[in-house]
C-alpha cells in the first residue's frame, strides 16, 4: 500500500509524458531521453564537463561559506559595526546575483577564476547576513555564564558563538547552495567553452532535443543530490539543536 502511494503519482506523470511525447517534436519519449542520458553523460563528458562544474561550484561555495562566517561573526558581535554596515549589506543582498556574471566576466575573464568568483560573490550574502543574525541573537544568559567561567578567546568562539549561531548559519548555507547552483549554470551558459551549462545550451542550439532533456535531467539530479547531501550534513551539525537528531522540525 505504501509503495503504491509512493509510486502512483510518479508513474502517472511518466505515463502522461509518454502519451504527450508522440505529438510534439520538443518532447521525446522517456526511453529516448533515458538512452540519450546514458550515452551523453556516461562518457568522457563526465570527466570533461560535469566534474569541473561541480568542482568549481564546491570551491566557490566553500570559499563563500568561510568568508561569510568570518565576516559575519565580528559584525554580529558589535552593535555599532552592525548599525553601520547593515544598509550596505542589505543593498548587496538585494542585487540579483546573476547580474554580477557580466560584470565579473569583465574583471576576471571567462576562465575558472571568473566562475569561482561569481559563485563567491553570490553565495556570500545569505551566509553573511544569517551569521550576523545568529550571532546577534545569542543567548545573553549563556554569554554571561561564559564570562563568569572565564571562557574566552578561541574557546568562547568555538564553543559558544559559532555553536549558538549554527542553526542560522546553516539556514544561510542552505540558501547559498541553491544560489550557487543557479550561478554555476548561468556563468557557463553565458560565456564558456566547457562545463554543464555550456554543453546543455550547445545541445539546444543544435536541436539535439533528447540530449538537451537529458542535460535538464542531469541538472535536476545534481540539485536533488546536493540538497540531500546538505540535509545529511545539517542533521549532523545540528544534532544537538534538534534534540539528538530526533528528526528535523518543520522550520523552513
Amino acid at each position: 500500500m505504501r509503495a503504491v502511494r509512493l509510486l502512483a503519482l510518479p508513474a502517472l506523470l511518466v505515463g502522461v509524458w509518454w502519451a504527450v511525447s508522440g505529438s510534439t517534436f520538443y518532447l521525446p519519449d522517456p526511453v529516448t531521453v533515458g538512452r540519450a542520458f546514458a550515452e551523453t553523460w556516461f562518457s568522457a563528458r563526465l570527466l570533461d564537463d560535469v566534474l569541473p562544474s561541480v568542482g568549481r561550484l564546491l570551491a566557490g561555495y566553500a570559499l563563500a561559506g568561510v568568508l561569510g562566517v568570518a565576516l559575519g561573526v565580528p559584525i554580529g558581535l558589535s552593535a555599532r559595526l552592525r548599525a553601520t554596515l547593515e544598509p550596505v549589506l542589505e543593498f548587496f543582498r538585494a542585487i540579483p546575483p546573476p547580474v554580477l556574471v557580466p560584470l565579473i566576466m569583465l574583471l576576471a575573464g571567462i576562465e575558472t577564476p571568473m566562475k569561482v568568483l561569481v559563485i563567491v560573490s553570490g553565495c556570500v550574502w545569505p551566509v553573511l547576513l544569517n551569521t550576523v543574525e545568529g550571532v546577534r541573537a545569542l543567548d545573553e544568559v549563556l554569554s554571561d555564564t561564559c564570562r563568569m567561567y572565564g571562557v574566552r578567546g578561541q574557546s568562547r568562539l568555538r564553543r559558544f558563538v559559532l555553536r549558538g549561531a549554527s542553526p542560522q548559519i546553516m539556514t544561510g548555507l542552505r540558501q547559498a547552495l541553491s544560489i550557487g547552483i543557479i550561478l554555476i549554470v548561468i556563468s557557463e551558459m553565458f560565456a564558456s567553452s566547457s562545463g554543464l551549462g555550456f554543453t546543455i545550451v550547445l545541445f539546444q542550439r543544435q536541436f539535439q532535443i533528447a540530449e538537451m532533456w537529458s542535460g535538464i535531467l542531469l541538472l535536476g539530479l545534481l540539485g536533488l543530490g546536493l540538497s540531500a547531501l546538505f540535509r545529511q550534513v545539517e542533521r549532523r551539525v545540528l544534532a544537538w539543536y534538534h534534540g539528538g537528531g530526533a528528526g528535523i522540525g518543520s522550520a523552513g
Binding site: 510518479p10 520538443y26 547552483i181 548561468i186 546543455i200 538537451m212 541538472l219 535536476g220 540539485g223 536533488l224
Partner: peptide, 26 residues
C-alpha cells in the same frame, strides 16, 4: 499529501535555470 510527497520533494530542488534551454526553444 502522502501520495504527492515524493514527487514534490523530487521536483522542488531542480534548479529552474535547468529550464533555460527549454524556454529558449519554446
Amino acid at each position: 499529501r502522502a501520495m504527492t510527497n515524493s514527487t514534490v520533494e523530487f521536483l522542488r530542488p531542480i534548479p529552474s535555470v535547468a529550464l533555460v534551454p527549454l524556454a529558449t526553444l519554446l
